[in-house]
Simulated assay, not measured.
Amino acid sequence: MSSLAHTTSDSWTMLRRNLLHMLRYPSVTVILAGMPVIFLLLFVYVFGGTLGAGLGGVSGGRAQYVEYVTPGIVLMAVAAAAQGAALSVAMDMTEGIVARFRTMAISRAAVLTGHVVGSIVQTMIAVGIVLGVAVLVGFRPTAGPVEWLGTVGMVALVALALTWLCVALGMASGSVENASNVPMPLVLLPFFGSGFVPTESLPGGLRWFAEYQPFTPVTETLRGLLTGTPIGNSGLVAVLWCVGIATVGYFWARAAYHRASVR
């Protein structure tokens, strides 16, 4: 068997392991979607009337705000699922399962790949739950088949980037406790972008940060795909951010795994 075929076979085995964990503990996926859903309900029903009126549209109020805020909530779900990958990797590293894998004829890349792909599957399920709840509370996307395909691709690309980064953070954290806290800023970043309010409404330095941080172009791209608002160059910028983050996360995670393997 060639090296590529061996790695692919081992990666599939590791993916099945992670999928079995997901099937045995479906509550984990529900919890990952739970926090974004709570924020969705909070912002739509508590703040939506005021924030929606401030958007200046024709309809105003909650009906307009749920259209605006849903892409930001989707990104929160993606970041929360990626944080779960950090926890999963940290548990494997600290509980000895990775040390056992090292004694077996398993491709090193397969262990991390299984975590990443499994997390992306879990992410897509969590995002589906969030979008389903958003529709129930009034979200009415105007996307056609092409736009939906673009939305799925964008979400998958963001999930890939954040998951590789969180896998690296989980390996570098040294403990499960640290792994649960280190990726937390990723969940909060949509608040400091265009996820909940337009960046034009933010003051000075915060506005500058919001306009140039990676979550803003991703949010604008998803919003444009789902609701038909202008995307401009946000799509290209979002893809570049995702590719850059995924590349850094991948090489960082691989290096951390190699260091752990030679100890």
Rank of each mutant, 00 (worst) to 15 (best):
A85V: 13
A85K: 03
A86I: 08
A86E: 10
L87K: 01
S88T: 15
S88H: 06
V89Y: 07
A90Q: 02
A90I: 02
M93P: 04
M93Y: 06
M93F: 11
M93E: 12
M93K: 02
M93N: 09
V98I: 15
R100Y: 13
F101V: 11
F101I: 12
R102G: 04
T103S: 11
M104K: 03
A105I: 03
I106H: 00
S107V: 09
S107E: 08
A109V: 12
L112M: 11
L112D: 12
G114K: 11
G114S: 09
H115T: 05
V116K: 09
V117I: 14
S119R: 14
S119M: 04
I120D: 02
I120Q: 03
I120K: 08
V121C: 13
Q122V: 03
T123C: 15
T123R: 06
T123S: 10
M124T: 06
M124Y: 07
M124R: 06
M124P: 00
M124I: 12
I125Q: 10
I125C: 14
I125P: 12
A126D: 11
V127H: 00
V130R: 00
G132H: 02
G132D: 06
V133N: 01
A134E: 04
V135L: 13
L136Y: 01
L136N: 06
V137N: 01
V137L: 09
R140T: 13
R140P: 00
T142E: 12
G144C: 06
E147C: 05
W148H: 10
W148F: 13
L149V: 06
G150F: 01
G150M: 07
V152G: 07
V152Y: 04
V152F: 14
G153I: 10
M154D: 00
V155C: 12
V155E: 07
A156T: 12
L157K: 10
L157D: 02
L157A: 14
V158W: 02
V158Q: 04
V158N: 05
L160W: 14
L160V: 14
A161C: 13
A161D: 12
A161M: 09
T163D: 11
W164G: 07
W164H: 13
L165S: 13
C166I: 07
C166D: 15
C166W: 02
V167Y: 08
A168K: 06
L169N: 05
G170R: 01
G170M: 07
M171W: 03
M171S: 15
